[in-house]
Amino acid sequence: MGGTGGPDKLIVNGKRLDSRKLDELRPLTIKAGTIPNAEGSCELQMGETKVIAAVYGPKEVLPRHLEESDRAYLSAYYDMAAFSTTDRCRPGPDRRSKEIAKVMRDALAASIILEKYPRTSIAVYVEVINANAGTRCAAITAAAVALADAGIEMRDMPIGVAGGKADDTVILDLDNQEDNFGQADVPLAILPRTKEISLLQMDGHLTKDEIKTIFSMCSKASDNIQKAQKEALLAKYGREKNE
């Protein structure tokens, strides 16, 4: 945010530097069931951001004292591969990835019917293998597909998407340049059916009207993202059903 040394303009004639429209998502590809070892898994690419999600569980709770008698214990883990950023990042969890794991866990917990799985644990793991902004949003979209792939019951499949501002203009799904040299970033997780928000963060400067625009842009985008999620699951399971 507000970095120096960036391009003079991020938006020219209503188009962004990668020629997207203001409310256009980056190309999104989702594949379900990519990790044979996991109960559920997903690989997602959003522009140049690439993440892999895996779900293990419901399984035994370890350590034992974390077990809850009326609901599943949900844990989430977010990690960036050392080569995923332009400057190599140190392997292993840091403060940023711990915070993202926490907000991601809470965002997913809002949609999972945890009461269905008492005395078990469900673990969601996300590995970012190439980062170009929006990794936490990509992580949530991918984790939701992995959870569905694992057969975990959910109220709705949540999606992650970010809105923001660059060159005094509200935009959708920021890439790295827009994130670094823009004016604001608002990552959201949305339950598309009810449009409830389960993750909300923001940094930068925005007016109330701008936030309202971002909410409506993201809410519209949530349907398209969920469509891609469903297509990924249909690609894996749909054919079997028809046979």
Binding site: I35, N37, A53, A54, A82, P91, V126
Partner: peptide
């Protein structure tokens, strides 16, 4: 270095 991240195995 190698990271055995939990996506790869239980």
């Amino acid at each position: 270095s190698a990271e055995l991240t939990p996506i790869a195995s239980v």
